[in-house]
């Protein structure tokens, strides 16, 4: 019994088992390629649109908490920032600005710094 199972050929190794004798696997690639259908153009547009909307949504979600953080420190508005000047206040402001400009200690256009005694020869 043992003798029947044991291979008597001393030159044949176990690795040389008849692997190649197994039937080759069928090539499925060609079948898959033939089965795929080309997508219509509008499908790409739809996919693009969906991706775009998703990106927008993601960006919106990312930006949302930042806005909240910015809103948190409440800036105390100064009266000049929020309150619009009334017509009388505007008139007064213009007059005050003009008064500042009209300070008599400053001269906007003094007499030009020219030499009034230019002469080629010194003696007259």
């Amino acid at each position: 019994m043992i003798e029947e199972n044991y291979n008597q050929n001393q030159t044949q190794f176990s690795v040389d088992e008849p692997i190649l004798e197994k039937p080759p696997a069928p090539i499925l690639e060609d079948v898959a390629v033939t089965q795929k259908k080309a997508l219509p153009k509008y499908a790409y547009l739809i996919i693009g649109g969906v991706v775009f909307v998703l990106v927008i949504l993601i960006l919106a979600v990312i930006n949302r908490p930042k806005e909240q953080i910015i809103d948190e420190p409440e800036i105390v508005p100064t009266p000049t920032m929020t309150q619009e000047l009334s017509p009388i206040e505007k008139k007064l402001k213009v007059a005050e600005d003009m008064l500042e400009e009209a300070n008599p200690t400053t001269e906007k256009y003094p007499f030009p710094p020219i030499n009034t005694e230019l002469r080629i020869d010194e003696s007259r």
């Binding site: 009388i88 213009v94 007059a95 003009m98 400009e101």
Partner: peptide, 17 residues
């Protein structure tokens, strides 16, 4: 003249008030 101009404007503000 500048000072007179300011005066005239302040008088107008006073009238409004």
């Amino acid at each position: 003249g500048d000072l007179q101009d300011v005066y005239d404007r302040l008088v107008l503000v006073r009238k409004d008030i």
